[in-house]
Amino acid sequence: MVKISITVDGERHEDEVEPRLLLVHYLRERLGKVGTVVGCDTSNCGACTVHLDGNSVKACSVLAVQADGGDVTTIEGLANGEWHPVQAAFKECHGLQCGYCTPGMIMAAVDLLANNPAPSEDEIREGLEGNLCRCTGYQNIVKAVQLAAEGGAR
């Protein structure tokens, strides 16, 4: 067991974990942060995307011990009183259907806009290449990111 200390959505947690514990399972099973989901075994789908120290990461491919001392933001901590503009834009543009990829897709989109506040359509598509959606065909996801970039829906 290894001692870790992680801040998740603004709250600090001290825990003892097995070294093999994946960050996503730490979030879901220890902390009850089930808004972040698991969609694959190979880091392809991006459903588990969260922010670690301000950058998007796939929480299924990070060990909890690697995140020791880190600051994690999940979909559940993204709204600050009111929804983040990207969350609002996803609803406004119908950028989700079943919603399973949505937490990861939104976290990836927030990261994308942090690095490139005015992306072209191609840049949005490339920037989301690590997040798979089986429902939307991505067109309304792209629209949502564009809307959020333009100042967005509220």
Partner: peptide, 13 residues
């Protein structure tokens, strides 16, 4: 959408 974009979901897992 409200619960889906905020992670307040009830997937079986």
């Amino acid at each position: 959408d409200a619960r889906l974009v905020t992670g307040r979901t009830s997937w079986t897992d």
